[in-house]
Amino acid sequence: MMIQYQPINLVMGPYGSGKTTFAVSLALEIAKREKNVTLVDFDTVNPYFRSHDYKSWLEDNNIQLISTNFAGTNLDIPSISGGLVSCLQDIERYIVIDMGGDDVGAKPIGGYAEFIRSRPHMAFVLFNQYRLIPDYLEQVHQIERESRLNITHFVNNSNLGEETTWQEIENSILPAKEMAKQLGITFWGTTAMPSFQQHNIFPLVKHPFLW
């Protein structure tokens, strides 16, 4: 599929929806076409699994990483380097922001919302039918309120990890489109491992830290 992206791309969604895998995959796809790409690890809530863990691998793929000041430690204080501000101001740079889950994880980005809204951007929300939380709709609305940003694109990221079959992906497409319709958000597409690329999906990167 021909991916759509903007200079600023935010990845949002409840815990378990697969934000980090999608954010890294999106950054890699953008890096195939653009020279200056930065992945911002803005997950200030979950200190145990974040993009900081594979910084050298990202750099090998020409992607700069900016992460919370305390990433890789057992501290969990919402703090991020001033590098984010300079990246947002760099009109020649493409940015993917991997945000924390739920409204608590979305709140820190709100401080940058006014500037983000002033520039071309996309805000993706992820959906995984096989890890769907009961209050998914309300949590998406809470993420929008706390981030002070409108979600623009809906991503069907339904999977069961490496055990996922094409039938399971196919069965998730209609429910995902219905959920996007309920939210009034543009349906962007469906993700899957590269082995399903012939089905016109967005390929997720396979990496030990992600699966």
Rank of each mutant, 00 (worst) to 15 (best):
I3P: 07
Q6P: 04
P7W: 08
L10R: 00
V11R: 03
Y15R: 15
S17L: 01
G18C: 04
K19D: 01
T20Q: 00
L26Q: 03
L28F: 00
A31E: 00
E34W: 05
F42K: 01
T44Q: 12
N46W: 08
N46Q: 11
Y54V: 03
L58K: 02
N62E: 13
N62Y: 10
I63M: 04
L65D: 04
N74L: 15
D76W: 11
S81M: 11
L84K: 04
S86P: 03
E92I: 01
V96D: 04
V96W: 03
D98S: 09
D98A: 11
G100C: 05
V104G: 10
A106I: 08
G111C: 10
G111A: 14
E114Y: 11
R117T: 12
P120K: 11
A123G: 11
F124L: 08
R131I: 13
I133P: 03
E138F: 15
E138G: 14
V140K: 04
H141P: 02
Q142I: 11
Q142R: 14
I151G: 08
T152R: 07
V155W: 06
N156W: 07
N156T: 03
N156A: 00
G161N: 09
G161D: 08
E163V: 10
T164W: 01
T165A: 11
T165F: 06
S172C: 09
L174F: 12
A180G: 12
A180H: 08
K181D: 15
Q182D: 12
Q182V: 13
L183K: 10
G184S: 04
G184T: 05
I185Y: 01
F187D: 05
F187E: 08
G189T: 03
N200Y: 12
K206Y: 12
F209T: 14
W211Q: 15
